[in-house]
Every structure is written in structure tokens, then in C-alpha cells.
């Protein structure tokens, strides 16, 4: 465990909590892509099946359980409790265009052709693109609430910090996981455009709105 890995995890946790609190406090999930949140719930479910087969550490187990629980709570708030506020008309990204190719790829390119490893690989590939419905929604409506942009910032920061963590681990531990690294690079690149807008607009107190 190095500082980049730890701050990456905490940044991920911050993103998840920010989103949950935003929905809970405003009693609304307006501007939030339910599809992205469903994909994240699927990501955590397929990745953390090793909870049943192996114990790494108390930290590892607790964080996995928290991520899974929070992602299901978020999906519940969007599709059940505050369904009336869900902006389904703008959440029109076709998720099958992500899930099907990612599913196929995880069968073809993995470390080991075993059920748990294929599901882990699936979750890594899926996570890298799971934010696309949310970014698509923002590009469609042309704007995002500031709190939503904070959520996206921490979510993007998490994978960027993981990239530094992997460089660290490569040099100091000889650890290298090509699947995670390539997917992590793709995932981080998807946030670059958003990072630019976040720094140039949101951090200067302006609302994130895109030119029509």
C-alpha cells in the first residue's frame, strides 16, 4: 500500500459518498445517469466475488463491501425512491454497446480462463467505460450541476492516482498487471476533457455548461 493507492481509494470513496449525499440531500437524482450507476453496480458485483473465496485484509474487505453497498444504494435511490426525479429522457446511451463488446473482450483477453478471473476482467474493462452514459447525458443537456462535477472529478482522480500507484508498484515491487493498466489508461483518458472543463470553469466558480 503506497500513498497514491490509498489516496486513490479515498478519492473513489469520496466520489461515491458525494453522489449518494447529493441525491439524498436534494431528494433528487436530476442530471445523474442511472445507466452509469447500474454499470458501476455491475462492475463492483463482478469484481468483488473474491470476497467469497479469499481474504486479503480487513481494509480490503471493508472497502469492497462499502463500495458494493453504496453502489446498490445509489441505484436504489435513482430507480426506486427518487424515480420521479430521474431524467430518463436524457439518459439514452445504449449500454448494450458497452456491455456486449466488453463481455466478449473479457473472454478473449484475460490472465486466466476461469469464471472468477473472466468476471474480474469484465469488471475492469467495463469500469473503464462505465462513465460514458453520464458524460453522454451531460453532453446532451449541455450542463451539469456543480456537485455532479465534483463527483466526476473525484471519480476521475481515483483512476489517475491508480496509474501513479502502478508506476510506483512496477518500480518498487515489480508488480505489473497489463489488463488493469491499459484499462486504467483508457478510463483516465475519458476524463481528460472533463478535467479541463472542471479546472477552467468549476474551480473558478462557474457552472459547467457546454456551448450549444
Amino acid at each position: 500500500m503506497n500513498i497514491f493507492r490509498l489516496t486513490g481509494d479515498l478519492s473513489h470513496l469520496a466520489a461515491i459518498i458525494i453522489l449518494l449525499l447529493k441525491i439524498w440531500k436534494t431528494r433528487s437524482c436530476a442530471g445523474i445517469s442511472g445507466k452509469s450507476q447500474l454499470l458501476f453496480a455491475l462492475v463492483f458485483t463482478t469484481r468483488y466475488l473474491d470476497l467469497f473465496t479469499s481474504f486479503i485484509s480487513l481494509y480490503n474487505t471493508s472497502m469492497k463491501l462499502i463500495y458494493v453497498a453504496c453502489s446498490y444504494a445509489t441505484v436504489y435511490l435513482i430507480y426506486m425512491k427518487f424515480k420521479a426525479t430521474y431524467d430518463g429522457n436524457h439518459d439514452t446511451f445504449r449500454v448494450e454497446f458497452l456491455v456486449v463488446p466488453v463481455g466478449g473482450l473479457s473472454f478473449l483477453v484475460n490472465h486466466d480462463f476461469s469464471p472468477l478471473e473472466i468476471l474480474w476482467t469484465f469488471s475492469i474493462y467495463l469500469e473503464s467505460v462505465a462513465i460514458l452514459p453520464q458524460l453522454f447525458m451531460i453532453s446532451k443537456t449541455g450542463e451539469a450541476e456543480t456537485i455532479t462535477t465534483h463527483y466526476l472529478f473525484f471519480l476521475g482522480l481515483y483512476r489517475a492516482l491508480y496509474l501513479i500507484n502502478w508506476i510506483w508498484r512496477y518500480y518498487f515491487e515489480g508488480f505489473f498487471d497489463l489488463i488493469a493498466v491499459v484499462a486504467g489508461v483508457v478510463q483516465t483518458i475519458l476524463y481528460c476533457d472533463f478535467f479541463y472543463l472542471y479546472v477552467t470553469k468549476v474551480l473558478k466558480g462557474k457552472k459547467l455548461s457546454l456551448p450549444a
Binding site: 479469499s54 469492497k64 463500495y67 490472465h111 474480474w120 488493469a180
Partner: peptide
Amino acid sequence: GQGVEGKDEL
């Protein structure tokens, strides 16, 4: 680690 069940990263 790589290709083993039970991952230490999240």
C-alpha cells in the same frame, strides 16, 4: 497480483 484469484487492489 496477476492472474490469481483474490486481488489486493480495489
